[in-house]
């Protein structure tokens, strides 16, 4: 196997290296890639979409159709993880572990109890991992709102600075994952319910495709935000800028929910009760 792998790697690598002879040099401003399509984006974006961040304009408008399917890819991965892993039946095997809040004594119940003990007296903790770090828990509790605020800023400011739906969505998702890491998975799941997460991830993509379909219903082509100008009551160029903002919000929502969905299912092998 190793010899075969070495042969394949050498063959493919050799082919790829030999082709670089015809490639333009690193950073060459006269390379075909920099001269054919991209100058139009750089020079016309402001005029056609009024978005200063060219990457955002190309991403969500000129090639917005790719980006819609890119969001769909994220959504697909979330649904796929759910389909492959989620299990409704409780985890087999050992018992549940509780901590008595007042004394810190840990109690293990070999049979899952019929009624949960009062949560203000006994707190359920994970079997093999007992985070009880006052500093970590409280620092994260303080940080998470600011992380989320920053995520919203990144989504909303994608027109003017590096950022946008994907980046902001990942930051928002990371804030929920941080909660699951510093507290536990159950806390994060009660704060953001499973059904809500699933619905948000579908809704996010639906916002994107829905804006496109609305343009189609208004008589334009699919995703032609300029056709939305009568509803938005602005001129077509500003309508493009606003359309980009709407789809970025959809992307952010979908990415955040899907990151949380994937993390939960992977971390708990689909049981959503405990896990890293």
């Amino acid at each position: 196997m190793k010899a075969l792998a070495l042969a394949i790697v050498a063959l493919v690598g050799g082919l790829l290296i030999s082709a670089t002879v015809d490639f333009p040099d690193w950073g060459d401003p006269a390379s075909p890639a920099s001269l054919h399509v991209s100058p139009h984006y750089v020079e016309k974006t402001m005029e056609e979409t009024s978005v200063p961040n060219i990457v955002t304009a190309v991403l969500a408008d000129y090639r917005g159709f790719d980006t819609m399917f890119e969001t769909t890819v994220v959504f697909t991965a979330g649904v796929a993880c759910f389909l492959l892993l989620r299990r409704r039946e409780p985890r087999p095997g050992p018992s549940r572990v509780y901590r008595h809040r007042a004394t810190g004594v840990i109690v293990e119940m070999s049979q899952p109890p019929d009624t949960e003990p009062a949560p203000e007296v006994f707190k359920r903790i994970d079997d093999d991992w007992t985070p009880h770090d006052l500093i970590v828990m409280n620092v994260c509790r303080l940080l998470i709102p600011f992380i989320q605020l920053f995520g919203l800023y990144v989504i909303a400011h994608g027109h003017h600075s590096p950022g946008g739906g994907f980046q902001g969505g990942v930051i928002l998702g990371a804030s929920v994952i941080l909660l699951a890491l510093s507290w536990d998975l159950r806390t994060a799941t009660t704060r953001m319910k499973e059904t809500a997460t699933g619905l948000m991830s579908a809704t996010g993509v639906f916002i994107y495709a829905g804006v496109g379909a609305l343009a189609l219903a208004m008589g334009g082509n699919f995703l032609d935000y300029a056709a939305l100008s009568p509803i938005l009551m602005v001129d077509p160029v500003a309508a493009r800028s606003l359309g980009i903002f709407f789809v970025e919000v959809g992307v952010g929502l979908a990415v955040m929910a899907t990151m949380v969905l994937i993390y939960r299912n992977l971390a708990s092998e689909g049981h959503l009760d405990q896990g890293l």
Partner: peptide, 19 residues
Amino acid sequence: ALVVIGPLLCALLVSVAGW
């Protein structure tokens, strides 16, 4: 456009209906 958009939108609705 409809060839692709029709099933895409319906797939999202199916997902919502699944919940």
